[in-house]
């Protein structure tokens, strides 16, 4: 059993129609075991009242759902315009040269994270990080934990005058 039945019941009740619970339950399953297993697909399908094949097609449509357990440390680097202009390609290439890449940690690219003011932006496990530089991100994937090494995201208002709505 991947999902907690009581919690599932409560989540289904939040929506006027059952099938809306597909994405929330898939997220819940991924939070619990790190990925979407066949068992999880079956449980979500039963709870949402849709065929398992349909849940499976939903899982493969959305890029954030994984069908395999990821490494403990995952860094996703934005490759869209502003981050590319700040050198995202070179950063990714350099990180992928590091020993342990693909086994102990993974370095992936993602599309725009809506954090262009922090280019190069990224997601480390489940938190927004940036601006990333090589030293900070290398420490992050090698040692994990201290996201501070790569300049933490924190409140987006923190980087005055970056996001404060234009304080002088």
């Amino acid at each position: 059993m991947v999902l907690d039945p009581a919690e599932t019941k409560e989540m289904v009740a939040r929506y006027p129609e059952r099938r809306s619970v597909v994405l929330p339950l898939l997220w819940r399953a991924q939070e619990r075991i790190g990925y979407i297993s066949d068992e999880a697909i079956g449980e979500v399908a039963a709870a949402a009242g849709v065929p398992a094949s349909e849940v499976s097609s939903v899982v493969t449509f959305y890029t954030m759902f994984r069908r395999e357990k990821p490494p403990a440390r995952r860094l996703q680097v934005c490759r869209s315009l502003s981050c590319a202009m700040a050198g995202a390609d070179e950063l990714v290439a350099a990180l992928r040269e590091m020993p342990g890449c693909g086994e102990k940690f993974s370095v992936e690219t993602v599309e725009c994270l809506a954090a262009c003011d922090r280019a190069i932006a990224g997601i480390y496990n489940e938190g927004l990080v940036g601006p990333l530089n090589l030293a900070g991100s290398a420490k992050l994937v090698r040692d994990g934990g201290a996201a501070g090494a790569a300049a933490p995201a924190g409140s987006s208002g923190a980087g005055a005058p970056l996001e404060g709505g234009g304080r002088p």
């Binding site: 502003s82 725009c112 809506a114 954090a115 409140s155 996001e163």
Partner: peptide, 12 residues
């Protein structure tokens, strides 16, 4: 790509 104003409103 380029837009991050809604994120600020949601977060802050």
């Amino acid at each position: 790509p380029g837009s991050f104003n809604n994120r600020m409103l949601v977060e802050d």
